[in-house]
């Protein structure tokens, strides 16, 4: 396809913007966990995949979609809590890279477990919200809904982090873990809560993902690397950075995909990412160390 500065190009830009909301929400959970616990969950996208299956089957089992989506949030929050207690906590004091690798084992496990439980077929939840036509442009309603919910989710997290004791403690523990007991804070509990919130955000994203994409066990590999890239580009741990990076990256994908093949949109985004990091290794909004 050719690239012209016309209405289709504008449509691509706006679709990129809508995609960015979802990507930013996905990046948010990972960013929170990394910023606070200093652990990278390589299996983060697989947690989202688990949530997608959860929402899918809850809905197919007869629950209203909104209830199914809420269940998805709880499911992934619990899964993330278990991940922290069973897998991360035992290696928390060892070399950081072990923490990254150990979640890589979980990635393989979750993929295989999903294959065993749900098969390799692509599954579609079968909800069509149709599309919205403005001028000659067409936007999927599911995507618009995702964008709005993602913004609301991010706002809710921001309020939680700045307005509550638990949220303040989550921000504080990222800055000085050793003295937390002097504040009467049990660090283990804060880490567990942080993990569960990170999982909850992944679960929220999962509920939106099922409206936009088919589910299959390997879906995590499709968008997992993208989420890591957004987090690093924004500055790991910086939530505003992750937000901005999501917008930058999604524009590359949307415009690249509309002009060329989808893979090239992604490939260009990754190339841009690598080059950008060479100029700003701490990320767009990361604190300079």
């Amino acid at each position: 396809m050719d690239c012209h500065l016309d209405i289709f190009f504008l449509e691509a830009l706006l679709n990129g913007l809508l995609l960015a909301g979802l990507l930013a929400l996905l990046a948010l959970g990972l960013n929170l966990v990394f910023g606070v616990i200093d652990v990278v969950w390589i299996c983060y996208a697989e947690l989202v995949m688990v949530g997608m299956y959860g929402v899918h089957y809850a809905y197919k089992g007869g629950l209203p979609f909104i209830v199914a989506a809420a269940l998805g949030i709880v499911l992934v929050a619990v899964a993330a809590g278990l991940l922290h207690v069973l897998v991360i906590r035992p290696v928390l004091e060892t070399a950081p890279i072990n923490q990254l690798l150990v979640t890589g084992g979980v990635l393989f496990f979750l993929q295989a477990a999903a294959t065993m439980a749900f098969g390799v077929e692509f599954k579609n939840i079968g909800i069509s919200l149709g599309s919205l036509n403005v001028l000659d442009m067409s936007f999927s309603r599911a995507r618009i809904l995702s964008f709005v919910v993602a913004l609301v989710g991010m706002l809710a997290l921001w309020l939680f982090l700045t307005r509550t004791y638990m949220g303040t403690a989550i921000r504080a523990i990222a800055q000085d873990r050793q003295i937390m007991p002097l504040m009467g804070v049990d660090s283990r509990r804060i880490y567990l809560v942080t993990s569960a919130i990170g999982g909850g955000l992944a679960g929220l994203a999962a509920g939106l993902m099922v409206l936009n994409y088919d589910i299959y066990p390997q879906i995590g590999l499709q968008f997992g690397p993208l989420i890591f890239m957004i987090c690093v580009l924004g500055g790991l741990g910086s939530m505003i950075g992750g937000f901005v990076a999501a917008f930058v990256i999604s524009q590359f994908i949307a415009v690249g995909s509309s002009c060329f093949h989808t893979e090239w949109g992604y490939a260009v985004a990754f190339l841009f990412f690598m080059i950008a990091i060479f100029f700003r290794p701490q990320g767009l909004f990361g604190a300079k160390s």
Partner: peptide
């Protein structure tokens, strides 16, 4: 906590 405001630092003191 260097990147928390003064008031948030005080809030942490009242965590219990």
């Amino acid at each position: 906590f260097p990147r928390l405001s003064v008031e948030d630092n005080l809030r942490m003191g009242a965590f219990v």
